[in-house]
Amino acid sequence: MTGQTCVVVDYGSGNVYSVLHALKRIGVDAYLTSSHTAIAGASRVILPGVGAFGDVMTKLRETGLDEAVVRHIEAERPFLGICVGMQVLMETGKEFGDHAGLGVVPGTVERVPEAVPGLPPMRVPIIGWHPVQPSEGSDWADTPFPQEARTPFYYFVHSYSVRPADPGHLCGEIAVEGRAIAAALRKDNVFGVQFHPERSAGEGQRFLQRFMAF
């Protein structure tokens, strides 16, 4: 990765330890930073996130990191948002009231559909390993997903999921008790995953490695 920098955005999110270690395992010397110039100018940026949408946005805004992230994305460099780090790409989050997101991808973040007529109830949070399928119209070409015909399992833990206004921005999904739940977004150089590649063992490391090669 000579000449390439991958930064992990530091705004007090809990899961950076495992993200950095997973990157280290695949030989990527990523660093954790809250420097606006480092983030806006990095070759690649990873935005981790756990907890509530509103809290994450508040922390990003208070530190001005929201603008740095958007500047990086506008420079058309590769970006990966993980879990709530993906959800904040949307315009609006509906967890504990309405909260404005970064607005990079049109659409909302809403509670997963617990009660659906004709379907058994589902337990929320969704927690566990789920096979991810390409969304309709996406063939995963030129994405960090496996490039061979294979269904990857990744680890999920969430109660809210993204609803892009343009279904073309959906890149992968899972099926839980008969419901299709968004698993990944793609808009140009911007990727977002609801699952945790840093916690998805070898499969997750392969995902991160392909993101580094993107």
């Binding site: 395992r25 030989g27 789920h130 096979p131 990857p152 063992a201 070898g202 499969e203």
Partner: peptide, 10 residues
């Protein structure tokens, strides 16, 4: 039940 595949890392 669904069972995750064991995939080695890079």
């Amino acid at each position: 039940c669904s069972v995750r595949d064991l995939v080695e890392g890079p």
